[in-house]
Design a protein around this nucleic acid. Structure first.
Length: 658
RNA sequence: GCGCCCGUAACUCAACGGAUAGAGUGUUUGGCUUCGAACCAAAAAGUUGGGGGUUCAAAUCCCUCCGGGCGCGCCA
């Protein structure tokens, strides 16, 4: 509701200013600081004052007097030094919000342009850790937000199954554990194979560091895997496939799934790079360096470098795309992949079913053989979001520069690096987990997670820990509830706590992870909002127990009844809650515009908090005025609907009880 | 050296250039025989790292200094 009125107010004001003052001006609005000051405020008269050389308050008064009425807005007043504040028609808003929440069909995905969101992208050589969870939670919630707004979205999870990280684990199996492919296969079929590899990977890191000459093993292993030859490739395939399945199970616990898993092996085997390379050469986006330290490499000059400098210097600054030995770098492959996402490569993968999501949907992956002809069409995106941490922003810039150099400026403009900061551990947390820290690290405010060193909180461990903690709370309160139900509730609370924790911080804030904060179910947490929903449902249940009829799960007061309640003084708190509950669409819009899922998390908390406040002030079951009781119930119903919808965007379920 | 990010209450974090800088945690105090206390109320807590500037208006933009992080590889 809120954003419709906001848009109408802005539009009307802009039109009025253009007609009355012949000034074209962008009208910005925000929320007034206090409830009594209206619902929308604009400082536009300050800017107008400058252009017209008149006092802002005077202009504001003039506009307030002359502005044509806006549906849903009761009046417009001047405030402060020259603000224009709009006051909504509260009864109208209440009725509309209620109608929209109950009647409005959810937006269905249009057949319009497709948005590709790439997230998770965990190297398939070890268990997922807390840092990977932030990526997946951000990506998944952003996808849910886009779908809520009616967008058609495809979720991709890129699998680097032929990289150094997989090679290192393969190296470990071959040279540290001396295992055959058959032995690895049986290990991979056992539970917790991802944990096994987590430890092995850390051991390999030490093994390679102990004796630098062993690095040659890595090169050989990597080459064999890339070419798909020998026991190395076979074990590599076994490891990466098994680990990807582990990751899918882990993410499933968080309610996260994918449409397609493009793999690096197919980018290599289906010669995606060759197509990209040809295009890049033909369009002059890259050239062969003939001098300096990059001699023999194919390089791309980055915008901003070069300029007046001589060729040799600028070639040294340029990004190497193809090494002098003829092999392509990571960025090169990424450019090819990005071209494919937009349908610009002139090539496609073949696909095969890889897994099923919890909802029964097929999760597809790529294959270099004929594949399954019934696979849906992937790629061909209009817009692409790559959810990748901020350390890779340079490389993401190179990829976009590549598109631009090929002349795909529009696609470059629609390529977004959805950047976020990493999850680190507080030194205390790292020490609790038994890691020895250097004096330097112990003095820092956080230490970086390192899969290579085996330093990190494994995702499944954390989820299980949360489930156990939630289970204790549930057991205390609902000892008589069947165990299966208690387990489900504990799971929902655990995921509520975890996802909220991962999403509450702005993207560019480094999360210093601490068990104490992450395991909390009180204060600004997911369970706080879940609890508000449970309370509302409990009220409705009590009403039903008392034999009261409620139309399709909610109260439907008449206009007169709404009028009856809101016409009395002292209803600001009811109005505040109504207004907030009617602001979901506006909040999601703003979260999408700024690509900031934290706004949605914040909204869930605010709505729950405002409800709790209301809940303590107004006792509904004992309300003697029947009309008022009905209106309060309707308000509860509205909040419940909106809060459940908001939590769903965050990937959080509201339990039946807790 | 070059580029990007950060510095806000004791701690963890919010705040489209807008009105008296807000939450949570922790601390202190109070509230369950009334719809669920995983809750609520109240108090204490701030030179928004320092200094300049732009603006009607700066935590926010610009400059500078201080402190911290990350990136810049023929690794991925």
């Amino acid at each position: 509701m809120y954003h419709e009125l906001e848009a109408a107010f802005r539009e009307q004001l802009q039109k009025h200013i253009r007609q009355r003052y012949d000034v074209q001006i962008a009208v910005t609005t925000d929320r007034p600081p206090k409830i009594g000051m209206g619902e929308l405020a604009t400082p536009v008269c300050f800017e107008l004052a400058k252009r017209l050389k008149r006092a802002p308050r005077q202009i504001a008064q003039e506009i307030a007097n002359q502005l044509a009425p806006i549906k849903g807005v009761a009046r417009v007043e001047v405030a402060g030094a020259g603000y224009l504040n709009a006051y909504f028609d509260r009864r109208e808003f209440f009725a509309s919000a209620l109608m929209q929440a109950y009647g409005g069909a959810p937006k269905t995905a249009s057949g319009g342009p497709k948005i590709v969101v790439e997230h998770t992208n965990i190297n398939p050589n070890k268990a997922a850790h807390i840092g990977h969870l932030r990526n997946a939670a951000l990506g998944d919630t952003f996808v849910r937000m886009l779908r809520f707004a009616g967008e058609r979205v495809e979720v991709q999870n890129y699998i680097d199954n032929t990289g150094v990280q997989v090679a290192d684990v393969v190296l470990g199996f071959l040279h540290l554990e001396r295992k055959s492919a058959a032995e690895v296969r049986s290990l991979a079929a056992a539970p917790r194979f991802d944990y096994y590899c987590w430890d092995l990977y850390a051991r390999v890191t030490t093994f390679l560091e102990e004796d630098k000459s062993r690095m040659a093993l890595r090169g050989d292993t990597l080459k064999a895997i890339e070419h798909g030859t020998g026991g190395e490739a076979e074990i590599g395939e076994i490891v990466s496939d098994a680990i990807v399945h582990c990751h899918l199970r882990t993410m499933e616990r968080l309610g996260i799934s994918y449409d397609v898993l493009p793999r690096e092996s197919e980018i290599l085997h289906l010669k995606f790079w060759d197509s990209a390379f040809t295009q890049l050469k033909e369009r002059g986006a890259i050239h062969l360096s003939t001098a300096g330290k990059t001699a023999g490499c194919w390089i791309m000059r980055m915008p901003g470098s070069g300029g007046e400098e001589d060729a040799a210097t600028s070639d040294d600054d340029a990004k190497i795309i193809v090494r002098s030995n003829g092999t392509v770098t990571y960025v090169g492959k990424d450019i090819a992949y990005q071209l494919w996402k937009f349908g610009l490569l002139g090539k496609d993968f073949h696909y095969r079913a890889f897994d099923k999501s919890a909802g029964g949907e097929t999760v597809w992956t790529t294959t270099s053989d004929a594949g399954d002809a019934s696979a849906p069409a992937f790629g061909h995106a209009y817009r692409v979001y790559n959810v990748i941490d901020s350390r890779q922003s340079y490389l993401q810039n190179v990829v976009v520069a590549g598109l631009r150099a090929l002349g795909f400026n529009e696609q470059a403009d629609r390529s977004t690096h959805f950047s976020y900061e990493i999850v680190a551990l507080t030194p205390r947390c790292a020490q609790e987990m038994g890691y020895e820290l250097s004096a330097e690290d112990a003095g820092r405010s956080y230490v970086e997670v390192s899969g290579r060193r085996g330093l990190g909180v494994k995702a499944d461990d954390l989820i299980t820990k949360l489930e156990d903690a939630a289970r204790k709370e549930v057991d205390q309160r609902h000892a008589d509830t069947p165990e299966a139900v208690r387990m489900k509730i504990a799971h929902q609370i655990a995921i509520g706590a975890l996802r909220y924790f991962l999403l509450r911080f702005a993207r560019n804030t480094i999360i210093a992870f601490d068990f104490k904060d992450a395991l909390s179910f009180e204060g600004e947490t997911g369970p706080y909002s879940q609890y508000a929903v449970v309370r509302i449902r409990s009220i409705f249940q009590k009403m039903i127990d008392r034999g009261k009829e409620l139309a399709n799960g909610g109260a439907q007061p008449s206009r007169e009844q709404i009028e009856h309640v809101f016409s009395r003084p002292g209803t600001d708190d009811l109005w505040e809650l109504t207004l907030l509950a009617g602001s979901l669409g506006a909040r999601v819009d703003s979260a999408i515009r700024s690509q900031e899922p934290a706004f949605v998390a914040k909204y869930a908390f605010e709505l729950a908090q405002t409800f709790n406040n209301f809940y303590h002030k107004h006792h509904i079951l004992s309300e003697s005025d029947a009309a008022r009781q009905l209106v309060l119930l309707a308000l509860c119903g509205l909040v419940e609907r909106q809060l459940v919808a908001t939590l769903a965007l965050l990937g959080i379920d509201a339990p039946a009880k807790m």
